[in-house]
């Protein structure tokens, strides 16, 4: 009796907590409302199943609790019932999987007009790189990384010279413009995660990964590293500022090119004689 009642209270408490508690996802700031919709569908289906299973169990515990003279019914199996349950479960699973795969396809298919920016993680800060006037990101290789060249741009690649390098600062994006972020790490695994964008992807040394989205509201959003990267993992924060077009252009004009940074450091970036080996390109 008490057990059945407590099970009912657990279901009721869980549902009320879900509906009434203030703890919920952050207001979305990207085009991935579809992801939220898929989560909502999943919450409904799984919530109904959870309540049904636990409430049915509570009913059984109350109705079939031991009393003097009670005998259990001997029934090894019921093909019909088992098949019905299997089919209904299959339909429920399909109802979650189908929209899930549909949205996953969108998530990995980058629109052609997306601008490519680069995010580079290192213990424990974020760097960014934007293509310069030529609209192309230059070649990079971890082997080129040095104090003057923290992102490892290839000094011999002319496309790299006008790239804008943002070391440890904020990344600005323009509202309404789809972006494809190329993700790279120069030391260990990191993960680019902005809760408001819903998007997330690991950054893996030795390869380039990507994530794309379209910012839909202006504001300042925090980047969390979401893959354990050592003792400073929780301190590895960055910021994304979503601007109007005007503010974005103003910000863009203030950024320094790779050539500018290298010149300041007194390095020559046009020395092509010692360019022996091929560098990896994006």
């Amino acid at each position: 009796m008490a057990v059945a009642l407590i099970l009912v209270l657990i279901v009721a408490g869980s549902v009320l907590f879900h509906l009434l508690s203030p703890w919920w996802w952050t207001p979305i700031a990207s085009n991935w409302g579809y992801i939220d919709d898929t989560i909502t569908i999943t919450f409904w289906i799984t919530g109904i199943v959870f309540a049904a299973v636990v409430l049915f169990m509570a009913y059984c515990i109350y109705r079939f609790r031991h009393q003097p003279g009670r005998r259990a019914v001997y029934e090894p199996e019921s093909r019909k019932l088992e098949w019905w349950l299997t089919i209904v479960t299959g339909l429920g699973v399909a109802a979650m999987l189908a929209p899930g795969l549909f949205v996953w396809h969108q998530f990995i298919a980058v629109p052609k007009d997306a601008t490519e920016f680069e995010v580079v993680g290192q213990q424990w800060l974020w760097n960014f790189r934007l293509p310069g006037k030529d609209g192309r990101l230059g070649a990079v290789d971890t082997r080129h990384v040095s104090a003057d060249n923290p992102l490892g741009l290839d000094p011999d690649d002319p496309n790299a010279h006008d790239d804008l390098v943002i070391e440890g600062g904020d990344l600005h994006l323009e509202i309404g413009k789809p972006v494809k972020l190329l993700l790279r790490s120069i030391d260990v695994l990191h993960d680019f995660y902005v809760p408001e964008f819903r998007a997330k992807m690991d950054m893996v040394p030795g390869m380039v990964t990507y994530v794309w989205f379209t910012p839909i509201r202006t504001g300042t959003f925090e980047i969390f590293c979401a893959e354990l990267c050592g003792v400073g993992h929780a301190d590895m924060r960055g910021r994304v500022v979503v601007d109007t077009e005007q503010n974005y252009q103003a910000w863009l004009r203030e950024q320094k090119t790779f050539r500018h940074m290298s010149a300041r450091a007194g390095a020559r970036i046009d020395a092509s004689e010692d360019a022996g080996k091929e560098s990896k390109t994006e």
Partner: peptide
Amino acid sequence: LFLGNAVVDVPLSDT
């Protein structure tokens, strides 16, 4: 079923 469904996993993974 949330985490197994690739796209739902994206915001929830590593949280």
